[in-house]
């Protein structure tokens, strides 16, 4: 992990490969909590990590389609009894 020290109003730049632009993360406020400003090229989504972990779980739940879902759910419900 790269560790960088920054003050308020300073920022870091993450340069994306192949001219896809830059991501800028700016420290807006420091204190007990810090406030960050984040700018990305179009098409990039920024998540709070704890939300993102739920996004991944939801995507997994949505794509969890065994060949015969009804059969799988029936078996699952029997196992749970």
């Amino acid at each position: 992990m790269l560790i960088i020290t920054r003050k308020a109003d300073e920022s870091i730049i993450i340069e994306l490969e192949d001219g896809k632009g830059n991501i800028e993360i700016k420290v807006l406020e420091v204190g007990n909590q810090i406030r960050l400003g984040i700018e990305t090229p179009a098409g990039y989504k920024v998540w709070r990590n704890e939300i993102y972990q739920n996004v991944l779980a939801n995507r997994q739940a949505a794509s969890s389609v065994p060949a015969n879902l009804l059969d799988a759910v029936t078996k699952l419900s029997e196992k749970l009894k």
């Binding site: 997994q60 739940a61 065994p66 799988a72 759910v73 078996k75 699952l76 196992k79």
Partner: peptide, 8 residues
């Protein structure tokens, strides 16, 4: 929400 892989 339930995630069901092939191996239930």
């Amino acid at each position: 929400l339930c995630a069901i892989p092939d191996d239930i």
